[in-house]
């Protein structure tokens, strides 16, 4: 394992727990819960304290520099929306990213996500979707409109450009993904698109299976780096789900280092 920061995985849990206890009181959680019920996406401002964000960002940056895979493609399964981004999949992060691993398996994170979405959330049954790194750093880079297979996702923002350079997230709640006949424009017409600007240390929680979402293309010198973590509902645990887009973009559970 490679640790790029003085902060260790063992120290992460108490640090995050202290921060969450201090900054996510019952009133704030209730407010986030209500907003999530309406918009199906909610930004958790400064979910990570700065020292933790910096440590995780350093770890993610180092992993992405060594193992990042650039993509420039469209996915027919999401109505030919674009993916221009650099990614790192779960097997590499599991080996080289102890902080990201510890963040994902942190029960305090799972607890607060459960409180906000209003049901118990779980670690994703498919390991390939536990956590992935995504970097957008060239003009036009984007993670185009899409849905995800599992019910929830929590995205930790490690680097983000000012909104004037794009890179903000957009969401169309209450939409559904018909993999045989995906209809992004129809979803845009039927739903109300909301946009959310983000800063490093923020996280956003999203009902990913029924909220079409994308990252607005970045421009100029903007750079955006996030860790996307999938969370499962209780129903997801016994539902057979496929992972086509994850397997292509992030490699699923295949370790690309073994292929080299």
């Amino acid at each position: 394992m490679t640790t790029t920061s003085a902060l260790t995985a063992d120290q992460l849990r108490p640090a995050l727990a202290r921060h969450v206890r201090r900054t996510f009181g019952p009133d704030r959680v209730r407010d986030l819960h209500d907003r999530f019920a309406t918009e199906n996406i909610v930004v958790l401002r400064q979910f990570c304290p700065p020292e933790l964000t910096e440590a995780i960002a350093a770890e993610a940056r180092s992993i992405a520099e060594r193992n990042g895979t650039p993509h420039d493609l469209v996915f027919a399964i999401t109505d030919s929306t674009p993916r221009r981004m650099t990614t790192v999949g779960q097997p590499v992060i599991r080996d080289e990213g102890p902080l990201i691993h510890a963040f994902y398996f942190n029960p305090d994170m799972l607890d607060i996500a459960s409180d906000i979405v209003g049901e118990r959330v779980h670690v994703c049954p498919y390991a390939g979707e536990h956590y992935v790194i995504s970097v957008l750093d060239r003009t036009g880079d984007t993670h185009g409109w899409h849905w995800d297979d599992y019910t929830y996702g929590i995205i930790l923002v490690l680097e983000a450009p000012p909104y004037t350079d794009g890179g903000f997230v957009q969401a169309a709640p209450g939409t559904s993904w018909d993999k045989q006949n995906p209809d992004v424009y129809g979803a845009l017409l039927r739903s109300q698109v909301r946009s959310y600007a983000l800063e490093p240390g923020d996280a956003y929680l999203i009902k990913t299976n029924t909220t079409m979402h994308r990252v607005h293309p970045i421009r100029g010198d903007g750079r955006r780096m996030i860790v996307n973590m999938t969370l499962a509902s209780t129903a997801d645990l016994s539902r057979p789900l496929t992972h086509e887009t994850n397997d292509v973009l992030f490699g699923g559970t295949t370790d690309p280092r073994r292929a080299k």
Partner: peptide, 17 residues
């Protein structure tokens, strides 16, 4: 003991590792 197993999820929720 897989992530699909409710008992695994229960233990994870308590911080087991």
């Amino acid at each position: 003991c897989s992530f699909r197993d409710g008992d695994t999820q229960y233990l994870l929720s308590t911080g087991a590792a």
